[in-house]
Design a protein around this nucleic acid. Structure first.
Lengths: 210, 210
DNA sequence: TCCTGACTATGACGAACGTCATAACTTCAC
DNA sequence: GTGAAGTTATGACGTTCGTCATAGTCAGGA
């Protein structure tokens, strides 16, 4: 149903975005990089680059949240944290620290399309929508972590804060690893995050009814 | 000595990079945004945009590390953490969540200059240098935190990990706040980081000699 | 067989990019 | 005043960008 060409374009765009960023990823390079026909761009993405970015964003989000959710439900919060970090470590090392997180790229950059704005006003609605999608992906990952912590007895407010800490620090660390061309920061952060989570879980175990 | 025009260009470039990212920040817009003469670009930055980015990067780094180092030395690690986060909160809110961290932008993107590469080979030395500079800024901020923790009795390895956690999670949170157009993640993360640091400091106070 | 729809190929358009060359303007020692 | 050096002004060059229009290919049902 969904075209194979289209899927390859979306995946390729996500990969390129994670390496070069949103603005530096051109549609021409996406088709070059994926071996897909250039003429199909307008067909599969009538709204152009904006649409391709949007699709790549939710694609990347699901690619992480799918395995993460499954693993967290079967093996708990700490295992989820380890898997989350191991996943990014794999992405970094397999690409020799070239690839990062496309969602973070959208959250850091600002995509403005010069071509479709003849009038002076930049289309800030499009940029808002991209940020909304990126925020949605982050919120989704956070929700998975939050639910796991809740299920293991952590109070709601604390679980929300811990989930935010896990997602934010991991994303930041991925960028730092890219800058350092080393996975060491990821190891350091993982170690500390495990301490934090296990201590939060232990504390709730001490006071089963309060 | 150092030209006023030049300084304005560097500061303007750092600001634009933090809002739009590296690639989306054009030299023409830098001079437009700062009211500086376009003809001075080649004069003050003979190596072109690459040089401007480099200068903006170390400028942004010092702008943070300066106040941070001073404050950490006089009031300690926890106060430093609070100031570090408050600083980013101010940047976010004053710009209505448009500005972020230019160093993170460099760490996430990949700047390639199409104009100066007639031959097929992309100048990866230039990109490596930018990553080195970004890594240096992160390392500098980390060193400040590390030194403060050491001075307050935290063991070396632990201090290194905690410093990495603080910098990485703050950077990641800044991006998340930008995506959410809200400072809430910053508050959540700050709260948890304070818990982690103060518990690490308390632990060292319990065992003064070991 | 032919038609119809989905998909692909290819070239063109206008705009913006980084860079460079050249000329004009300031400033100040001599 | 007169150079000279340090700046600023301005236009041009070649490239790449996103998008669009047009023509081509290729299924599978009538």
């Amino acid at each position: 149903m969904t075209s194979d060409t289209r899927a390859k374009m979306v995946a390729g765009a996500a990969d390129l975005m994670s390496r070069r960023g949103v603005t530096a990823t051109s549609m021409r390079e996406v088709v070059r990089h994926t071996g897909t026909p250039r003429g199909s761009i307008g067909h599969h993405f009538p709204r152009g680059k904006q649409q391709l970015i949007e699709d790549a964003l939710v694609f990347a989000g699901k690619q992480v949240s799918g395995p993460l959710e499954h693993l967290v439900q079967s093996r708990g919060a700490i295992a989820g944290l380890r898997a989350f970090i191991a996943l990014w470590r794999q992405t970094l090392e397999k690409s020799k620290f070239q690839a990062g997180c496309p969602v973070l790229a959208v959250a850091v950059e600002q995509y403005v399309n010069d071509a479709t704005e003849k009038d002076g006003a930049p289309d800030e609605a499009a940029q808002r929508h991209l940020l909304d999608l990126a925020d949605g992906v982050f919120a989704d990952w956070q929700r998975i972590m939050f639910t796991a912590l809740r299920r293991e007895g952590v109070a709601p407010a604390r679980a929300r804060r811990l989930a935010a800490l896990v997602i934010a620090s991991t994303e930041g660390t991925v960028a730092m690893c890219r800058a350092a061309r080393s996975a060491q920061p990821l190891d350091d952060v993982r170690q500390e995050l495990e301490l934090v989570l296990s201590s939060a879980l232990a504390k709730q175990a001490e006071v089963p009814r309060a």
